[in-house]
């Protein structure tokens, strides 16, 4: 993308317009985006640093941390494998119905998180398709870890795939075809040719996928059953503590998630700046 040359006299906005745009734009971002994040830090440290760390050591919060890490550790790798498989099929081959299937991959982004959670109640819940059978066999899916994982996979499914598919389409498959002609097998081609070409985009997608997986609230809230110390993730713990008017603890937990968001943003901006040429141009 070529930078617009900005020293052209015809593009110069009047001074009052520049001032208004700056004040409006920066002010809006400060008020609606920066201030809320600052609030999290201020409220979390309201009663001092000691109270902050003490509230994080609460056993329920500790178990919520473990739960969030467990869910992300299952959901993110699965979506990574899915993203790579989808990108291989869609990026390297042409077949009928490709456009329709591509839009289906993006479908979870258009579904309300609440609906993303409730569909699993309808399949695996007591009133659901497999509910009675699961109950007979003492298998718990909703209101337990598998339900949390499935709801999380649903909402984070497109992240890796949508980074890789446009990139692999752009890159074409000449290099892979050459490797094939030289006698390399499928996995060899993937490891030595494709993976090095897509590694930064892959990392980018995983980063966003992980941030959403750890921060998802609506979908997980519906399938968790809110069993304290058992099926609570960090965002759900924020909800519980906040409703108990335990503000310091609620915002202390929220600050962990806000910290994760900030780290993700910094890493994402770094990748965009350093490896812009190796990320998909047609992204978003």
């Amino acid at each position: 993308m070529s930078e617009v040359r900005l020293d052209r006299p015809a593009l110069r906005d009047p001074r009052w317009a520049r001032a208004a745009i700056f004040i409006g734009g920066i002010g809006f971002l400060l008020l609606f985006v920066v201030l809320p994040v600052a609030t999290v830090a201020v409220e979390a440290l309201n009663k001092g640093i000691g109270a902050y760390f003490k509230s994080l050591q609460d056993p329920d919060t500790q178990s919520a941390i473990r739960m969030t890490l467990t869910v992300a550790a299952i959901a993110v790798p699965l979506n990574l494998v899915f993203g790579v498989a989808a990108a291989w099929a869609f990026g390297k081959f042409d077949f009928r119905g490709k456009t329709l299937l591509l839009s289906l991959i993006d479908l979870p982004f258009s579904v309300s998180p609440v609906i993303a959670g409730m569909v699993f109640l309808l399949v695996f819940g007591l009133q659901g398709w497999f509910g009675p059978w699961l109950r007979e066999h003492h298998i718990k899916i909703v209101f337990a870890l598998p339900g949390l994982v499935m709801a999380t996979i649903f909402v984070t499914l497109p992240f890796v795939a949508r980074e890789l598919i446009p990139l692999m389409q752009e890159q074409g498959s000449e290099e892979e075809e050459a490797a094939r002609m030289l006698g390399a097998g499928g996995f060899r081609i993937f490891w030595s040719i494709t993976l090095p070409n897509i590694k930064w985009a892959l990392l980018y997608g995983v980063l966003l996928c992980n941030a959403r997986a750890m921060g998802e609230f609506g979908a997980v809230s519906v399938v968790s059953g809110h069993i304290r110390g058992l099926t609570n993730t960090l965002p759900l713990q924020v909800d519980i503590l906040y409703n108990e008017y335990n503000m310091v603890a609620a915002f202390a937990v929220a600050s962990l998630l806000a910290g994760l968001a900030l780290i993700t943003l910094v890493a994402k901006s770094f990748l965009e700046w350093r490896y812009a040429d190796q990320l998909a141009l047609t992204r978003r």
Binding site: G215, F217, L234, P235, A254, A261, L262, L265
Partner: peptide, 10 residues
């Protein structure tokens, strides 16, 4: 990037 629950309480 910010989880919706965090945005909500903030």
């Amino acid at each position: 990037a910010l989880p919706t629950a965090v945005a909500g309480v903030a």
